[in-house]
Simulated scan of single mutants.
Amino acid sequence: MDNLRDRVVVVTGGTRGVGAGIARAFADAGAQVVSCARRPPEVPLDGVEFAPLDVRDAAAVGDFFAARPRVDVLVNNAGGAPYRPLADAAPERHARVIELNLTAPLITSLAAYQHLRRTRGSIVMIGSVSGGRPSPGTAAYGAAKAGLESLARSMAVEWAPQVRVNTLVVGMVRTESSALHYGDTDGVAAVARTVPLGRLAEPADVGAAAVFLASGAAAYISGASLLVHGGGERPVFLDAANVHVGRRET
Rank of each mutant, 00 (worst) to 15 (best):
G232P: 11
A179Q: 15
R133L: 09
V169E: 06
L4A: 05
S122M: 14
V48M: 06
E176W: 05
L151F: 05
E158S: 15
G79R: 07
G207Q: 11
A210R: 09
C36N: 05
I107Y: 05
Y220E: 01
G131N: 04
E149Q: 13
G14E: 05
V243T: 12
A25K: 09
A156G: 14
I98L: 10
D46F: 05
A179S: 14
R117L: 13
D57C: 10
V191N: 06
A58Y: 03
R118L: 11
P161T: 12
A67L: 12
V71C: 08
L197S: 09
A59C: 09
W159K: 14
V124F: 07
T108K: 03
A209P: 10
A66E: 15
F50I: 12
V11P: 01
R7N: 09
Y141T: 06
D239R: 13
I107A: 10
V18W: 02
S177P: 03
A241Y: 01
S154Q: 15
M155D: 06
A20F: 03
S225C: 11
G62A: 15
F237W: 12
V211S: 01
I126V: 15
V243H: 02
H181V: 02
A179N: 10
S35Y: 07
I126P: 04
R247S: 13
V73N: 06
A240V: 12
R193M: 04
Y113E: 07
L148A: 05
T250E: 00
I98E: 06
M1S: 11
L197F: 08
R164W: 03
A144W: 00
D46L: 01
R68W: 10
A204T: 13
K145W: 00
L168W: 02
A112C: 01
R174Q: 12
V195N: 07
E42Q: 12
G171V: 03
D57M: 10
K145R: 07
F26T: 08
P85M: 03
R247A: 13
A160I: 13
G142W: 00
P161S: 11
P82V: 01
M125K: 04
A156N: 14
V129W: 03
A218V: 15
A179F: 08
P203E: 03
G13W: 01
V211C: 09
N242K: 07
L102H: 05
R247H: 08
Q32V: 14
